[in-house]
Amino acid sequence: MLGGQTRPPVHLLGFSKGGFAALNLLTRHPDLFALASVWDASLLSDRQPHPQLVEVAGSAARLDEDDVRQNLRRHAQDLREAPRIALRGIGTLGADWTSGRQLLEALGNPHYAYRDAPVDHRWDAAWLAPAIRHLLTLEADFLPDPSAREE
């Protein structure tokens, strides 16, 4: 049961900015989304956001509303029940991966941090299988009753 309704759990999967979007959705709406597995997600460090992300958001103020770090802090209690996030980060976003893990640990949020994925930050299918595998691992922990995963 999520959001007070019985329905299939919604899982999120994302690469780079898509990983940021997946984390943002989960951290803004932990009652609507069950799990997120992200690969090289941006904006988990305390550095200034890349101007391109501000442009995508429309403004710095709008980007602040979508600040994954702040939303992790706001909803820390809701995200403590079981591991709901799997992180993979490398290359230019390795600092984000490290900072994201440190924040999750400081907030007491269980999560998986994995390294069994490609080492290059480029869109291709190589990141997808490990991200899905870790999403399914999260699901097994979050939804231990197999009947909850059948739909």
Results as ranks from 00 to 15, higher is better:
Gly3Gln: 12
Arg7Asp: 06
Pro9Lys: 04
Val10Ala: 10
Val10Asp: 02
Ser16Cys: 02
Ser16Ile: 07
Lys17Tyr: 14
Gly18Tyr: 04
Gly19Pro: 14
Phe20Arg: 01
Leu23Val: 02
Leu23Glu: 03
Asn24Thr: 09
Arg28Trp: 04
His29Asn: 11
Pro30Trp: 14
Pro30Ile: 14
Leu35Lys: 00
Leu35Phe: 05
Leu35Gly: 00
Ala36Ser: 13
Trp39Asn: 15
Asp40Gly: 05
Asp40Cys: 03
Ala41Pro: 04
Ala41Trp: 07
Leu44Thr: 02
Asp46Gly: 12
Arg47Met: 12
Gln48Pro: 14
Pro51Tyr: 07
Val54Gln: 09
Gly58Gln: 10
Gly58Arg: 13
Leu63Ala: 13
Asp64Arg: 04
Asn71Glu: 05
Arg73Asn: 00
Arg74Gln: 15
Arg74Cys: 06
Ala76Lys: 00
Ala76Arg: 03
Gln77Phe: 02
Leu79Cys: 04
Arg80Asp: 08
Ile85Thr: 00
Arg88Val: 04
Gly89Lys: 03
Gly89His: 00
Thr92Tyr: 05
Ala95Val: 06
Asp96Tyr: 02
Arg101Trp: 12
Leu103Trp: 01
Leu104Pro: 00
Leu104Phe: 01
Glu105Tyr: 00
Glu105Leu: 10
Asn109Val: 15
Asn109His: 01
His111Gly: 11
Ala113Trp: 03
Tyr114Asn: 06
Tyr114Thr: 02
Ala117Tyr: 03
Pro118Gly: 13
Asp120His: 11
Arg122Ser: 09
Trp123Met: 14
Asp124Pro: 03
Trp127Gln: 13
Trp127Cys: 12
Leu128Ser: 01
Ile132Val: 15
Asp141Met: 10
